[in-house]
């Protein structure tokens, strides 16, 4: 296991994750949905490979970012997208 941990902020709360983790995995660790669907359902990543687009979230202020294809960086801020 890579021992280096980094801190990112999920919906304002800090969480420590292994360096190199995918942002979608970090959201799952934080039990935070990636997005709220058009009818208000919480959604998390489905396909894990950038196809289904369920993993979209707001990353450093940019909405519709695919968290399945984004590697966590120290200090990154991610928010559930509604």
């Amino acid at each position: 296991m890579p021992d280096q941990q980094i801190v990112i902020h999920v919906n304002g709360s800090p969480i420590s994750v292994p360096a190199g983790s995918m942002l979608s995995a970090a959201l799952l660790m934080a039990s935070a949905p990636c997005r709220i669907s058009t009818t208000g359902e919480p959604r998390t990543a489905l396909c894990g490979m950038g196809i289904c687009l369920e993993c979209r979230a707001i990353v450093n202020g940019v909405p519709h970012t695919r968290t399945c294809q984004t590697v966590c960086q120290e200090g990154m801020r991610v928010e559930t997208q509604s």
Binding site: T44, A45, G48, M49
Partner: peptide
């Protein structure tokens, strides 16, 4: 999750 989907997420650190 998808079956392969969960596997990919686990490989991604979940």
């Amino acid at each position: 999750f998808g079956a392969g989907g969960l596997q990919a997420l686990v490989k991604g650190g979940y």
